[in-house]
Design a protein around this nucleic acid. Sequence first.
DNA 1: CTGTATCCTAATCGATACTG
DNA 2: CAGTATCGATTAGGATACAG
Lengths: 146, 146
Amino acid sequence: MNEYTDTALQITKSWNAYQAACPTRLMLNRIADKWTVLVLGLLALETKRFSLLQREIGGISQKMLTQTLRGLERDGLVLRTVYPEVPPRVEYSITPLGQTLVGLLAELRRWSETHIEAVLQAQQAYDQQAHAATDQEISGIRRIRF
Amino acid sequence: MNEYTDTALQITKSWNAYQAACPTRLMLNRIADKWTVLVLGLLALETKRFSLLQREIGGISQKMLTQTLRGLERDGLVLRTVYPEVPPRVEYSITPLGQTLVGLLAELRRWSETHIEAVLQAQQAYDQQAHAATDQEISGIRRIRF
DNA sequence: CTGTATCCTAATCGATACTG
DNA sequence: CAGTATCGATTAGGATACAG
């Protein structure tokens, strides 16, 4: 058991992200995508078109935005609507499934904003110790730099 | 304003992940790391040593585990403790800062497990439409496959 | 405007070998 | 045991050109 077979309607939710082949890994990777949080965060507020999304997300290339949106669409988190006009207009909106995720993603952004200072400080401390010290400072002898 | 200067003690929290240079992007990327969720999820339960972590996380290579742990340590989310024994024993534990994140990460895993079926289904539907159809189905004319 | 296609570079990652 | 170092393969990603 605990396999990921195609057995339809199997009740036993045997998902376990700690196993290499578990498909929930794919979802974690999608959520974990560099741009997903930002794209979904914007679409959670309102339907937007391609060019506006690109303008509002600093540093994203056209290629990456396209790629991210395609992925989100394929995963059922975003709906793509093409209006047959010239010039073409394409609008992206969030789906109900996508909506179930936005709260979580907002919390991630909030966590980052709240704790970034602590993290940056930790990084500085880490980098300063240089970590060439080979671990005898555990015994109470603190290494002195230079 | 809204710059990321070094001005110490500046109160105005001007973080905005939608700007390319915002350091909170780094945090999002760390959280978004393929392995972070899994590693921190285990360490949230109890202190563990290297080899055990690797055994419990299916598919992670030694290199990636090392790399992930170093990053987490540098960010102040994980504490690395070396016991000067032979053979060496190294234990990894979660820090208070790391603790503030585990609830969120657990929710991510839970979301993935809860919605993976809907996502897989959406993917199937998406793949089946093949998306060679160039958008005239918007007008009500549904394309028929083959 | 909203893409796709191509080229090219840089980063990622696994596998393997080796060290204290 | 817990790594580091190195190599090669794959992938991610930016830049550019171009199409509908």
